[in-house]
Amino acid sequence: MSPQSIPIHALTEEAHSIGNIRALLTEIASLLDKLDRNNESGMIDLNSLPLAPGEYEKLRLALGRGEVSARIDAIGPSEIIETHYPGVWWVTHYNVEGDIVADLLEIATIPEIIKSQPEDMHAGLARLRTRLSEVAE
């Protein structure tokens, strides 16, 4: 039996479409509307949704890529992409092994994880002052 003899059936649209994508896009639109009007940010946890096989990829296609992308390295990489719709961010956290540990859509002007954290700033400031005192000596 050669690989060519294996029949290939193209899956039809209906085979796996259970309507999650439309529902998700509707929710994103409503969150984006809130952000626009009241400056309220919102998040959607993609891991908590019963997505059918293929729907994740469909969502990717539907949202597309926008102008901004960022990468964080903190116990594994994180990938932040502004989608084709400004204000809608796709935030994916990986562990050091490269597995996804959290997958979010964040509807905000800037995703929370990109902002510098006060505790880190305090520590950094302390380090900077130590450095300055060392330089002064």
């Binding site: 998040m43 891991n47 959290a102 997958d103 979010l104 994880i113 510098s116 880190d120």
Partner: peptide, 20 residues
Amino acid sequence: SRRAFLKFCTALASLMALPP
């Protein structure tokens, strides 16, 4: 870092099925 910890907590919240 705190950012790393925040990332960890985001993953944890997702695990615990809490709002992100």
